[in-house]
Design a protein around this nucleic acid. Structure first.
Lengths: 215, 215
DNA sequence: TTGAAACATGAGTCAACATTCAGGTTCGGG
DNA sequence: CCCGAACCTGAATGTTGACTCATGTTTCAA
């Protein structure tokens, strides 16, 4: 893969990134500004001039760093993907088993979304603005996830089942919960939501075997 | 709800729909053409002239039936919502219990998506083009769904749990599966996918109790 | 100190629509 | 046959905004 200077963003400029410190600072400002603007106004409502104004640079400067409007957008999607994967693998890294990992993962995901609302929107809009970037985002994600599930099944930590289908169902569930409770209702109790969600993912809807048992 | 003439689409024209047969035919042509165009090129890439050309009418005619580009789009989203709800309630109407209803529902949903790829895309893009219509779509949907789950829980057909969270998780799962296997991989075996998905939703990831278990 | 590479700038170009409008055409009841 | 309502039309208007470019300014190594 490409080197990711600073925070993992692939720069533009044909081949090489900025050479000087000033250049790197300007690139970062543009990227941050673009993320903000795209995040709140959406791709089509965002003008390059909005981005450069927010970044505090001249309009022409944008094209010193990016070939086109679409290019920044793609860079942002890729960046978000890397960050999300990083946050999740961190949160899950010392889970004792897969079921616990699921529980931790969904919770970390909701928190992450809430902390990055605008970039989250960018990813979702990519489906229409940059379909390739969107599919790449989920492909990368699902490849790793599927791997995890398959191995867990082999270890007997989860039941057998089509890992691919499960991965997409689980990603979909998380995505919608992120939208509803992370973006739309950002006052909701993330803990309670992720508990309920994890319970569904782990135990399903089926009634528990009746027993005198309980916690 | 509002009267839905013909196929459930809310017409434009300030207050009343077309008065003559010719008018109704033209409206329907425009609606169909718009659905097609928006579905394959997306909202922003679709020009009104594309729609009118596909419909075989003059450019100005569009504005006889719709106040704006956004208005057709919203009409389409609403129409798709009504159709989806109808298809699902049909498919589920004589399920013996909720778990079976879930199984049938997910399958019917995948089939429906595959039969209406373009309108499906319209709904998803509504998130950015007409957020209100999008939220309305899912609110209507989730209200009914939540109701179903709550009652089923009361009847003991499913376990207890936060119905709202479950509904959003389940809608998310279905949506993503629809995207992956209904739109992207339209050659996939819908039956196998929906079986695997239903199994996950019903039984979760947890390993099944060993046979001859205690209970 | 100096020259050239790197970086910055914003007025101007240009194509792409959404929407309007003034003037037809068709239809149906009287 | 006649008239008004309903319907149809596409050229013209006006706006918007991505992208270019000719001309600076800054940086830094030699």
């Amino acid at each position: 893969m490409s080197q990711h200077s600073g925070s993992g963003v692939a720069a533009a400029q044909e081949r090489t990134g900025p050479k000087t410190e000033r250049g790197r600072r300007t690139l970062r400002r543009l990227l941050d500004a673009a993320g903000e603007e795209f995040g709140v106004r959406g791709y089509h409502e965002t003008a390059i001039s909005h981005i450069t104004q927010r970044a505090g640079v001249g309009l022409g400067t944008f094209y010193v760093y990016f070939k086109s409007k679409e290019e920044v957008f793609k860079a942002l999607v890729a960046d978000m993907g890397a960050r999300t994967r990083h946050a999740l693998s961190e949160s899950v890294k010392d889970a004792p088993n897969r079921l616990e990992a699921e529980r931790l993962g969904i919770q970390a995901y909701l928190e992450f979304v809430r902390m990055h609302k605008s970039l989250y929107r960018v990813v979702m809009e990519a489906q229409f603005v940059a379909p390739d970037a969107y599919r790449a985002y989920y492909r990368t994600f699902s490849d790793a996830y599927r791997q995890q599930l398959s191995q867990a099944a082999k270890r007997g930590e989860i039941s057998d089942g089509d890992a691919e289908v499960r991965v997409w169902a689980l990603m979909g569930a998380s995505t919608f919960l992120g939208l509803k409770y992370g973006v739309w209702e950002d006052g909701a109790d993330v803990n309670a939501v992720s508990e309920a969600a994890a319970d569904l993912m782990i135990n399903g809807l089926a009634p528990r075997a009746k027993n005198g048992d309980a916690s």
